[in-house]
């Protein structure tokens, strides 16, 4: 880690004043310190936001919940309201990282998790995301864990978060404060595709701070499933994950949400894939239609072609489990 200045403001305004291109906010620190130790990130100042009043989980006027940016992943997953009303979110969080990391990691920080691309993490090799313009060895290298959707010539990295896949499916809203005041960002717009600026994971400006994540009233509590497929039973990043949520009426699908993790630079959703389910019976045949639409345009690299078929099957399984209200520990199959 490089030397840096440290400050711990007590108010949001104060934190924003300290922000800038060479400063980073720190909450749980689980990803930031990891990156700093690898010399991937070298901030000159850390702004410790743990003194800010962003730890509440509060009801919103529209019947949803507002989750403060500093609520830990563990506190969120084990909050009784989340468990009962948004089990998809609870499942996704508990499928990620380890109990220790979930105790530390914050809601806001989870949204800012950076990719686990091997090349991004190794300062001894080129990477466009770490050093723009240096090249992308993953494209022609070890790319079994990389993107099949939405990738660019410059970057084939994937977003590693589980929680974000559920938040995308639940259509959460990210509330952000900046010098110009607050703004609300739909979850689908928060993360971005790499394009020719892969160094930017999301639309947050350097001087903006996440205050909260808002969940809408609808939590799909009766029929949802987070399914995570990985190389070991726990404590591993997803090869493919699915957040599936259904509203059923006598076996007929009235509403559906579907998001994929581990396949793109952001949680992957497609309106057509959800619309095709509406009004149809909850069956594997129906689910397969949605899977095909969701994966339309998928392009394999040398080692990750399996993800396309795996994701298809995972979507079918997750929707089936959601329909039958089946959940397994840690999001396992």
């Amino acid at each position: 880690m490089n030397p840096f200045a440290y400050s711990k403001p007590a108010a949001v305004n104060e934190a924003l004043r300290l922000a800038g291109p060479n400063a980073r906010f720190i909450a749980g620190g689980t990803n930031l310190l990891d990156l700093m130790k690898e010399n991937v990130t070298r901030p000159e100042r850390l702004i410790d936001i743990n003194g800010l009043p962003l730890r509440g989980i509060d009801a919103t006027a529209s019947g949803g919940l507002r989750i403060g940016a500093l609520v830990s992943n563990a506190d969120l997953a084990w909050d009784a309201r989340i468990e009962q009303r948004y089990p998809l979110l609870a499942q996704a969080i508990l499928a990620g990282a380890s109990p220790q990391l979930r105790n530390m990691a914050s809601t806001g920080g989870n949204l800012l998790q950076r990719t686990r691309c091997y090349y991004f993490y190794d300062a001894g090799v080129p990477c466009n995301k770490r050093e723009p313009g240096s090249g992308c060895p993953a494209k022609d290298g070890l790319n079994r864990i990389h993107a099949i959707l939405g990738a660019s010539d410059d970057c084939v990295a994937v977003n590693p978060s589980d929680m974000c896949v559920a938040l995308a499916a639940l259509e959460a809203v990210v509330i952000v404060a900046g010098p110009q005041g607050e703004r609300r960002i739909d979850f689908a717009d928060f993360h971005r595709l790499p394009g020719d600026t892969p160094e930017r994971d999301n639309v947050l400006a350097d001087d903006e701070l996440i205050l909260a994540v808002e969940l809408p009233a609808e939590g799909f509590a009766a029929h949802s499933r987070y399914l995570k497929i990985r190389d070991r039973a726990s404590y591993a990043f997803a090869l493919v994950s699915v957040a599936a949520a259904l509203e059923l009426d006598g076996g007929i699908i009235r509403a559906a949400r579907l998001a994929l993790g581990g396949v793109a630079h952001k949680p992957w959703r497609r309106q057509e894939a959800e619309e095709v389910l509406i009004g149809k019976p909850a069956s594997d045949e129906t689910f397969a239609l949605a899977a095909d639409l969701l994966l339309e345009g998928a392009r394999p690299l040398a080692h990750n072609g399996f993800k396309i078929e795996l994701a298809r099957r995972a979507v079918v399984r997750a929707l089936g489990d959601a329909a039958h209200s089946i959940q397994h520990q840690g999001g396992r199959p």
């Binding site: 090799v125 290298g141 070890l142």
Partner: peptide, 12 residues
């Protein structure tokens, strides 16, 4: 896993 282009282990 070794990246043979770089001659380097990558999942270290």
């Amino acid at each position: 896993q070794i990246d043979h282009n770089l001659g380097r282990y990558m999942n270290h």
